[in-house]
Amino acid sequence: MQLRLAFVSAALVTLAFGAPTLRGESPEDCTTGALECCQTVELASNPSTYQLLGLLGIVPNDLNVLVGINCTPIPFVDGVVLGVCNDNPVCCEDNNTNPYVPISIDCVPVAL
């Protein structure tokens, strides 16, 4: 309950003082896919990432692309971020909807 209250309080403070805007690649520039917040971002060629992709039946076209692991969407409106990403904000081309390990492929880092 306290965690939920802290989250709601943080969201209200963000709305009261204005949400941060993106610096660098903006949501409008994120034309290849969705803006995501990923717990981990690794190259597809990383052995553990490659193995995870294989277990999920995902075969990347290029092993030099970034793969986001445990990703959630970052909502935004008119270039203003409406959420918080304390991990790795990225713009990803292919967002896998695997319910066990949310993965995004072909990601580009985004500065918030």
Rank of each mutant, 00 (worst) to 15 (best):
S26P: 03
E25N: 09
L22H: 11
D29G: 14
I74C: 02
C92N: 03
I58Q: 04
C91S: 00
V90Q: 08
T21N: 14
L63N: 08
S45F: 05
G68A: 05
T72D: 04
T40K: 05
D94W: 09
N70A: 06
N64C: 03
L56R: 05
L43W: 03
T21H: 15
S48D: 12
I69M: 09
S48N: 11
Y100R: 13
G54T: 07
P75Y: 02
V84A: 14
V67R: 00
G24D: 07
F76I: 11
C30P: 05
L53G: 10
N96P: 02
I69L: 10
E93G: 01
E36Y: 02
V65T: 09
N70V: 11
A44H: 04
N88A: 11
C85M: 03
G54M: 05
S48M: 12
N70K: 05
L52R: 03
E36P: 01
P99S: 08
S48L: 12
P99D: 03
V84M: 10
N95D: 11
C38S: 04
P27K: 03
L56Q: 07
I69T: 09
G79Y: 05
C107N: 02
G57T: 07
L56A: 06
L56T: 01
S26Q: 13
R23E: 15
N46S: 12
N98I: 10
V90D: 04
C37R: 06
G57V: 11
L35R: 11
C91R: 01
L66T: 06
D106P: 04
A44C: 10
Y100V: 15
N96I: 15
V65C: 03
T97S: 12
I74Y: 00
D106F: 11
L82K: 13
C91W: 02
V59G: 04
E36M: 15
N96S: 15
L53Q: 00
P99N: 02
P47Q: 05
V101R: 03
P102C: 04
N98F: 04
D29E: 11
L55E: 14
V80R: 13
T97V: 14
G33W: 06
V67P: 00
T32R: 13
